[in-house]
Amino acid sequence: MWIKLGSCVLAAAAVLAGADIHGTIIIDRKLSRHNVTASVGMYQRGVAVELRADAEADPLALERSHVAVYLEGGPKSPVTEIAKASIEQKDRRFVPDLVVIPAGATVSFPNFDPIFHNVFSLSKAKSFDLGNYREGQSRLVTFPVPGVVAVYCHLHSNMAASIVVAPSRWAVVVDRDGVFTLKDVPAGTYTVVAWHKTAGTFRKTVIIGEKQDAAVSFTLPYAEPTDASRVAHR
């Protein structure tokens, strides 16, 4: 369930030695419905298939963990190494169903189900159709243009995933506690963007000084003044 930015290491980060942005996401109510579908793979005759058992104990934690945060307005930094993410198809679901990648990154779509899947997207940022492919096979897609890409499966209408293609390399998925950190941000003025599939996009301006951490907090789904609030120096 966690973001796998396995080799999201930037060579320039150490040189610039910028500050961190700490933030919290507060969500006070449930924003979306999560249908838990039956797991596939039990195609033995007579075996019962469990359906619609929502095991999520804390729905707000689930909502918080489905928020993507990234920076806009920073200096352009070309991607020197191809960042990679993966969205698996498992039990007729995309796992994870939200990934945040910098523009130019590549996402793999491996199929772990004993049935066919057909992953496709019609989004402006990137439209693709991977065709039907079977268990054990995988496909790779590169996302050069920033934006939100909605990913579906032709065969299973309930399968959906979102890929947030950030214009910068500072892009994370908030953890279940609603906490995120954008590390080593060079000094400058940025816009912090929080995106939730149902709640929408929220922006806040933040100014980063030399070695001066900043803090930003979003309360979803309410819109707040977009002026940045300076955070006291540590």
């Binding site: 579908t37 039956a38 596939v40 195609y43 007729r92 057909n118 039907n132 065969l155 299973h156």
Partner: peptide, 26 residues
């Protein structure tokens, strides 16, 4: 789409049939 898959893969493909049967179950 499932039927197209089935047609494309051929009636003997177990995985393709599983896919369709899975859809039918739903």
């Amino acid at each position: 789409a499932g039927l197209q898959l089935l047609a494309a893969e051929g009636g003997t493909n177990e995985l393709a049939r599983n896919t369709v049967q899975d859809q039918l179950s739903e």
